[in-house]
Design a protein around this nucleic acid. Structure first.
Length: 476
RNA sequence: GGCGGCGUACCCAAGUGGUUAAUGGAGCAGUCUGCAAAACUGCCAUUCAGCGGUUCGAAUCCGCUCGCCGCCUCCA
């Protein structure tokens, strides 16, 4: 078996062969930190989190994800609030990190900031001027798009057609309207750094090229980001990096995640339907959000609806309830050290090696959940003990999958606790009513016991009378 | 107009050349239960937008048609 990945550069699924045997260098475009991060940021981060975790099983991985902390939007937002760009950026970096932690996103190996890479940005810019690929003009420096013969190879665009489109920034200082800024002369009050071209700040695209060179290498294995970044951002990154280093391809595999739509509409400022991660987490566990995001292949568009997250939460509930049953009905399975069943592992591997098909893996997990419940039901019905070996093997499979999917890895108790925390239910109150209801049931006062159950249900608490007593959980 | 993608059950979504087309949610019936809930069992796509073609064989490959979406402007 061999890992295959869809490469945006070749528009094909290709076998994954790293540049250096056994090592993977991976860079993913992170957020521009001027506002709270939204569900789209979450999707990108989760998708590449799973990809990096999976690659780590086989390779030594160095994964960098940047923060764009100097940019027009940051400056605008900071001015509006009357704070410095730096202060604003730091605030949203912190918020982003917290959101990522809520979603179980592992911290990348390196998290560079544009403002910490100015030296390299200036160096690369100077190299591009020296090589005749860029030119300085009134304190700005522009990259000359027409001087690179294969410009447009990632996005499939042709320079002349772009020109015809004419939806490009008109700027007197440019030799060609398509040229893009490597360095921007700063206006008074803007964050600025000294440079050979006067005080200024980096353009958007150059920072990623520079950060890649500093923290990874001149050529990397994987470059990721949202689909919308293909043009112009990644196209320009390729142009700069390859022109500056003379080495190609800059990134061997380009991976792009699809969008999150909200109720069938594109998420956008103008529609006012930007869905922040925090808003979603008010009603759902981070794990459910993650399961929802992983439920479709990372390249496909995914539609967020009111029901979609509830379904993900219901799925998790089913999963943890089943694991809880094993603990109750066959505790021996928990402490056993069981080997993975080769055929099951093969199914999981096959799915993941097909362009990281996490959705397929989730399907396998739920198939296993049904199987476990059947084993437990059969054993209970026959009055015999279930096969601890078999259950332990399933648990081993769950652990294996949880390690790279970042879901299904908690304990049933932790999961239940998080659900209760969201619902903000007073446990003592619930326990008291359950005790009262159980006395009523014992006395066969079913009318009263049903009233209590209805009362709790109205508050979002679901009761279940099991052989080992009454348990409660929070309704999804 | 250029480039890319998608169309699988009531909803979501795997499957991309070969026995009865995963999984989850919803629904219906049954087992269990004081009644429920949960769990399990059965039912729910003879068919994969449509039409042709290639093949012994296609949801899967090719062509065309229809429909939808994204990028081409800041955007995960």
């Amino acid at each position: 078996m061999a890992l295959k990945v869809y490469n945006s550069l070749t528009r094909k699924k290709e076998e994954f062969v790293p540049l250096t045997q056994g090592r993977v260098l991976m860079y993913v475009c992170g957020p521009t930190v001027y506002a709270m991060s939204h569900i789209g940021h979450a999707r990108s981060a989760v998708a590449f989190d799973v990809i990096s975790r999976y690659l780590r099983k086989t390779y030594e991985v160095r994964y960098a994800r940047n923060y764009t902390d100097v940019d027009d939007k940051i400056i605008a937002a900071a001015n509006k609030e009357g704070v410095s760009s730096e202060e604003l950026a730091e605030r949203y970096i912190k918020a982003f990190d917290e959101d990522m932690a809520s979603l179980g996103v592992a911290v990348p190996d390196v998290r560079p900031k544009a403002t910490e890479t100015i030296e390299k940005i200036i160096e690369v810019t100077r190299t591009l001027i020296d090589k005749g690929m860029a030119y300085a003009s009134n304190g700005d420096v522009f990259y000359s798009v027409r001087r690179k013969a294969d410009y447009g190879k990632l996005s499939g665009k042709k320079i002349d057609e772009l020109e015809a489109g004419a939806r490009v920034d008109v700027n007197e200082s440019k030799q060609d309207p398509l040229d893009f800024a490597l360095w921007k002369a700063s206006k008074p009050g803007e964050p600025a750094w000294e440079s050979p071209w006067g005080k200024g700040r980096p353009g958007w695209h150059i920072e990623c090229s520079a950060m890649c060179m500093v923290h990874l290498a001149e050529r990397i294995d994987i470059h990721g980001g949202g689909k919308d970044l293909i043009f112009p951002h990644h196209e320009n990154e390729i142009a700069q990096s390859e022109a500056a280093t003379g080495k190609a391809p800059y990134a061997k595999y380009w991976l792009h995640n699809g969008f999150v739509n909200i109720e069938r509409e594109k998420m956008s400022k103008s529609l006012g339907n930007i869905l922040n991660i925090r808003e979603v987490l008010e009603n759902q566990t981070g794990e459910a959000v993650r399961l929802f995001l992983l439920g479709s292949h990372y390249r496909n568009p995914i539609d967020y609806t009111q029901d979609s997250l509830k379904e993900a939460e219901a799925g998790l509930e089913r999963f943890y309830k089943t694991v809880g049953r094993i603990a109750q009905e066959c505790p021996a399975a928990l402490s056993m050290k069981a080997a993975l069943v080769a055929e099951k592992l093969a199914l999981v591997t096959e799915a993941m090696e097909d362009d990281f098909n996490a959705a397929g893996v989730i399907g396998i997990v739920f198939g296993e959940v049904t199987r476990i419940n059947r084993i437990l039901d059969d054993a209970r019905g026959a009055g015999v003990a279930p096969s601890a070996d078999e259950l332990a093997a399933s648990l081993a499979l769950f652990r294996e999958v949880a390690a790279f999917l970042g879901v299904f890895g908690a304990t049933p108790e932790d999961y239940a606790a998080r659900r209760r925390a969201i619902a903000a239910v007073d446990a003592a109150y619930v326990e008291r009513l359950i005790a009262e209801r159980n006395s009523a049931r014992k006395a066969r006062e079913f009318k009263r016991s049903d009233e209590i159950r209805a009362e709790l249900l109205a508050k979002g608490v679901v009761l279940e009378d099991t052989p080992s007593g009454t348990v409660w959980s929070v309704k999804g």
